[in-house]
Design a protein around this nucleic acid. Structure first.
Length: 924
RNA sequence: GGGCCUAUAGCUCAGUAGGUUAGAGCGCACGCCUGAUAAGCGUGAGGUCACUGGUUCGAAUCCAGUUAGGCCCA
């Protein structure tokens, strides 16, 4: 007879094959239909808040692994905190303005470019940004992220735009905003500023010249020998704007008597320079350290002012003479040297790249055309020591393809060292940083280091797509008008109508009456055309968002972004918050590393090692991606590779099958009807319940420290070892073969029920879809609550039984010896399954305490048919395994002497016989 | 070149305050089972703790340097 149907074999609709790519969208629909996000907020309303403020990704392109990692981390933390009872509204946001979008739109315009007016460009940029907001929103939700996706914050919304002006007004009120010049990339043909991303680097042939700057002061310890310091440059046209010559403080400089005169050159570059200038003789006279020469003056080729020798770490030994010509208006490094030494910044070049009256010798000439004249002039003065041509990579304009230049233009700045109320923004920020919790903790070093060295913040951009810098200029005297009062007017307007209004309305419409120039008292103004740096825009998100969505708080509890944001959003947010609101906008800052490949190298198209999160979702499922996030120690680089995902899929399967098996054994269990209190459970069931408490404790501690990978490992280990390899394997005999309503089986089921309902909740923040699917499966689906509406499991101290666990630890050690012995027999082909084995233990007397009362449990622990214990052992435990006596019971597969005792059921053992009788009776 | 950080089995991670033969899971190899079955179980083999030097009775752990890699800056 086939006794299969008399067994309580597992039954469940929870499929072994996950098919996540199809199932997850269904679960997400379920969340949406039931408004689970709203219900979670409802459940926690009135509780303490935990606000994670979303850093806005840029609305350009599809999400990549890094963006996915970031959003999943946030989502896991929010789901966990919500289950812990915190009120966690999550408002996702997008960075919608800025040069990359404008550049993309312009590229697509093609022929139309140039014909479109500013407003049309802005309209198209807006369309473009909103398109990608929609797209990324769907992609984020596909990852299982829950949040207020119906009403996200967008930096292009009027209310958000107004916040920029509000913060700016505060900064202006504190005297932190000023206007000054700074060199930027400039295309003299298009007459426009260019961003780094708009540059195309190509080879260019430039003049390569050596120029003598005769020293006005004597060298230390020497008389006046008419010595000259020699510079090398590829941009002769920047020489009229020269104000200094930079030497490396640690480099050695040689004074040499040469065929070209008495020259000062850097020692490491001496040979090359002598060759470059074709000098026939060169005799060393003296040598100096760069730091010794600081402060000496040289004669400028054309101006009355001296060119002063300064020290700079920027000077390299790669090319040139070790003496670098400095024109602060024509180079970024030059600019910083200028700031350091408080040098003047002449700018004799106009918008069209022509020399102005500031360089009368070359006035009217286009810079490239002037090179020749400059060379001739220098030669005439005897200052040109050598000239040639050089092919080198040089930035070109993406539009007209011509070479671009560095040119100082007026910009707006936030001064970090301006004093107000007895301190500066820099110092206040440094102070504020100490009150913030940095995770990992060493991030405070990085943040402080960057704050200490950062320059003033240039917040203006010569662009169309963004929020205007709402300044006015007096048409009479040119002076700017930017006051808290004028800004309030603009804030009102932008808040009501959006930033387009700035461009559409004239000054009087915006300002109204009552404003006059602080310089000349005039009342005729024009508008600034620059817009704000997008970093300023995202930097005011705390102001724009945290006050404006229900339930959010200022400051918030956490910012969570990649470690690159120390220089980005963490810092810009801190500057605007401390500058305008006198406090940091966040209580804690958590950072993660960057995604790298299996070899630890960064992901890049050129390396061909890029993995798309959307592709992973389609092929493997979002839960696999979430498992990847949870499994990695994200404080450092996060590796991603095919192999890693393969391993994660295996791990996922293990967890899923464990859930499935648990569910399968609960098919006939009713927690109301069949419950068994832990105190009444079988010892083995109390053991797994106790182990479960340890798991809950470990997971809770790890989550509280944001150490997700410890949760993953703990959960996986629990499923693979405690449950699959041990508890469930040992308990199958009871679950399958005991009478369905027997006390022992109910005890096992009650334990399994507790385990199941706990681990599904433990994994819910991470495997949010799978946990939901399993949770629904337990209740048969319809009308069930979401697992995300459940509370995080609590450690039940009274169920934690260290003594019991210790006892089981010893039993499991015995088990290990037994399984090894069984394996020997199996290898010898004497037995197959362990139920074919009988075990004889010879143990010392002192083990009677451990084993005496548990002899009946030993066959279960070892999963064998028979165990005999002899307490007459001397020292070591001796294990002997032999084939079990008796015959195999056709139902429970144990080997029993009792099989065959009942002629009506000759293949049943005495344990199965009554169960079958009852089963038959129950059926009849 | 500068700042911050990382390096433990093929993979993901533990390794508490320097102290026995460095752990886990997965993968792999071999075997078992066929009542978790595109599952489950057992046994086993894998590590010069990146490298070099130092401190110490003793270093994966502390210090210095080197190499490789990441982020930011130049």
């Amino acid at each position: 007879m086939d006794y299969r149907q008399t067994l309580n074999l597992p039954k469940t609709g929870f499929a072994m094959k996950a098919n996540l790519s199809a199932r997850e969208p269904e679960i997400q629909r379920f969340w949406k239909e039931k408004d689970i996000y709203g219900k979670v907020l409802e459940r926690t309303r009135g509780n303490q808040a935990f606000i994670l403020h979303d850093g806005p990704p840029y609305a350009n392109g599809d999400i990549h692994l890094g963006t996915a990692l970031n959003k999943i981390l946030k989502d896991i933390i929010i789901k966990y905190k919500s289950m812990r009872g915190f009120h966690c509204p999550y408002v996702p946001g997008w960075d919608c303005h800025g040069q990359p979008i404008e550049h993309e739109v312009e590229k697509r315009l093609g022929e139309e470019r140039g014909r479109l007016d500013l407003m049309e460009v802005r309209r198209r940029c807006r369309e473009y940004a909103l398109h990608y907001v929609g797209r990324q929103s769907e992609q984020f939700q596909r990852l299982g992220v829950l949040g207020d996706f119906e009403d996200p914050y967008l930096t292009l919304k009027p209310a958000y735009e107004a916040a920029n002006v509000r913060i700016l007004a505060e900064l202006v009120g504190r005297g932190l905003v000023y206007r000054s010049r700074k060199p930027i990339h400039w295309c003299p043909r298009c007459m426009t500023a260019l961003a780094e991303a708009e540059l195309e680097y190509r080879e260019k042939e430039s003049p390569s010249i050596y120029v003598a700057f005769p020293l006005l002061d004597a060298l230390p310890g020497r008389g006046d020998e008419g010595a000259a310091v020699v510079i090398w440059t590829t941009t002769p046209w920047t020489l009229p704007a020269n104000v200094a010559i930079a030497l490396h403080p640690d480099m050695e400089y040689v004074l040499a008597d040469t065929s070209g005169g008495c020259l000062l050159l850097g020692r490491p570059l001496l040979e090359e320079a002598v060759k470059g200038m074709r000098l026939s003789s060169c005799q060393e006279l003296a040598s100096y350290k760069g730091s010794e020469l600081k402060g000496l003056r040289a004669r400028h080729p054309w101006r009355d002012r001296a060119s002063v020798l300064v020290n700079s770490e920027y000077v390299t030994t790669g090319q040139g003479t070790g003496a670098v010509h400095i024109a602060p208006g024509h180079g970024e490094e030059d600019y910083y040297v200028g700031l350091e030494y408080d040098l003047p910044m002449p700018m004799p070049v106009d918008d069209a790249g022509r020399f102005t009256g500031e360089a009368p010798e070359f006035e009217g000439l286009f810079i490239e055309d002037a090179n020749e004249r400059i060379l001739a002039d220098l030669r005439g003065r005897g200052l040109l020591l050598g000239s040639g041509e050089l092919l080198h990579p040089y930035p070109h304009c993406w539009r007209c393809k011509g070479p671009v230049i560095f040119r100082a233009t007026p910009q707006w700045f936030i001064g970090v060292d301006r004093e107000y109320n007895g301190s500066t923004l820099r110092l206040r920020c440094l102070e504020a940083v100490s009150g913030v919790e940095w995770v990992p903790s060493w991030n405070i070093r990085r943040m402080k280091g960057m704050l200490e060295t950062r320059p003033d913040w240039c917040i203006s951009r010569q662009r169309a797509w963004g929020v205007p810098i709402p300044a006015f200029y007096c048409n009479a005297c040119g002076r700017e008008l930017l006051t808290p009062q004028s800004l309030r007017k603009v804030e009102e307007m932008i808040g009501a109508e959006g930033s387009d209004a700035w461009f559409l309305k004239d000054v009087r419409e915006i300002l109204g009456e009552g404003f006059s120039c602080p310089g000349c008292g005039g009342s005729d103004f024009r508008k600034e055309t620059d817009i704000l740096d997008v970093w300023f825009e995202s930097g005011v998100s705390h102001e724009a968002v945290l006050h404006s969505w229900e339930g959010l708080t200022w400051p918030c509890d956490m910012y969570l972004e990649g470690s690159d944001q120390h220089r980005g959003w963490f810092q810009t947010s801190l500057l605007t918050a401390v500058g305008a609101r006198d406090a940091p906008p966040y209580r804690s800052v958590l950072t993660h590393g960057f995604v790298v490949d299996g070899e630890g190298r960064k992901m890049s198209k050129s390396l061909g090692n890029v993995i798309s999160p959307l592709d992973i979702c389609d092929r493997l499922g979002a839960d696999i991606l979430r498992l990847w996030v949870a499994a990695a120690d994200y404080t450092v680089d996060i590796p991603a590779s095919q192999e890693i995902f393969d391993r994660l899929v295996e791990a996922y399967r293990r967890i899923r099958n464990t859930l499935r098996f648990l569910l399968g054994n609960l098919f006939d269990y009713d927690p109301e009807r069949d419950a068994v209190a832990p105190g009444d459970m079988e010892e083995i069931d109390r053991w797994i319940i106790s182990r479960l408490q340890g798991l809950v404790r470990r997971c809770t501690q790890a989550m509280d420290r944001y150490q997700l990978h410890l949760v993953y490992h703990a959960l996986h280990n629990f499923c693979a070892v405690d449950l699959s390899a041990l508890y469930l394997d040992m308990r199958k005999d009871c679950l399958y073969t005991f009478a369905p309503r027997s006390r022992q089986r109910h005890s096992a089921q009650a334990a399994i029920y507790r385990v199941f309902t706990a681990i599904t909740r433990l994994m819910a923040p991470i495997l949010c879809h799978t946990a939901e699917e399993a949770w629904q499966a337990l209740r048969g689906g319809a009308g069930a609550d979401s697992v995300h509406l459940q509370e995080w499991p609590q450690v039940e101290e009274d169920l934690l039984d260290a003594h019991l666990e210790d006892r089981f630890e010893q039993l499991l050690q015995l088990r290990e010896m037994v399984t090894k012995s069984i394996e020997e027999l199996r290898l010898a082909k004497e037995i197959g399954t362990s139920l074919e084995a009988a075990v004889d233990l010879k143990v010392p007397e002192h083990m009677r305490g451990l084993l005496g009362e548990r002899e009946g449990l030993l066959p279960t622990i070892f999963i064998v048919s028979e165990v005999h214990v002899d307490y007459g052992g001397a020292g070591e435990v001796e294990v002997a395994v032999r084939r079990a006596a008796g015959s195999k019971c056709a139902r429970c597969w144990n080997f029993r002497a009792s099989v065959g005792e009942d002629p009506a059921y000759p293949d049943l053992c005495d344990r199965c016989l009554p169960v079958v009788m009852e089963w038959g009776g129950g059926r009849g």
